[in-house]
Measured scan of single mutants.
Amino acid sequence: KKKREHFRQLLDETSAITLTSTWKEVKKIIKEDPRCIKFSSSDRKKQREFEEYIRD
């Protein structure tokens, strides 16, 4: 659960993310961040979390 919170925090702090951002764009920006790396090695899982984040 904590990894998820850190991942969401990373998304919060990434000012380039807007409601129209695509995962492909965002992934390029955040892929080097340790919170992104630690969250999951599964790209699909990160994408799902990102899409949920955008909906919230």
Rank of each mutant, 00 (worst) to 15 (best):
K31R: 13
E25A: 03
R8T: 02
S21N: 10
D12S: 10
R55C: 07
D12Y: 02
E32R: 07
K1L: 00
E25C: 06
L19R: 09
D43G: 01
Y53D: 09
H6D: 15
S21G: 04
R55D: 09
L11I: 00
K46V: 06
D33S: 01
D33C: 05
V26K: 01
K27M: 02
Y53A: 05
D43A: 01
H6N: 15
S40I: 01
K1R: 07
Q47T: 02
C36N: 05
K24N: 13
K2D: 15
E32S: 11
F39G: 02
K27I: 04
K28P: 14
C36D: 08
S41M: 11
K27R: 12
A16I: 06
I17V: 12
T22M: 02
S40Y: 01
E51P: 03
F7T: 10
C36F: 15
E52C: 14
R4L: 03
A16L: 08
F39N: 06
S41W: 11
E49A: 14
K38H: 11
L19E: 15
C36G: 05
I37H: 11
I29W: 12
T18Y: 08
F39T: 03
T18M: 04
I37N: 10
T18C: 08
Q9G: 01
K2A: 09
K24T: 10
E52I: 14
K46M: 08
I30N: 06
I17E: 00
S41L: 09
Q9D: 10
I17N: 00
L19F: 09
I37G: 02
D12V: 05
K24L: 12
K38C: 12
T14L: 08
T22C: 05
F39R: 01
C36I: 06
L19C: 12
R55Q: 15
R8N: 08
K46N: 02
H6W: 05
H6P: 02
K38R: 13
K38N: 15
I54G: 11
R55K: 07
E13M: 09
C36M: 03
P34C: 04
R4K: 12
F7P: 00
R8D: 04
F39H: 05
K2Q: 13
R35T: 00
L11Y: 00
C36Y: 15
E49L: 01
T18A: 04
W23N: 10
D12H: 00
K24R: 08
R8I: 06
K2P: 05
E51S: 07
E25W: 06
D33H: 00
K3V: 08
R35Q: 00
R44S: 14
S15I: 10
E13P: 04
R8S: 02
T20P: 08
K31H: 13
F7Y: 10
L19N: 08
K27L: 08
E32T: 15
Q47D: 11
A16N: 11
F7A: 02
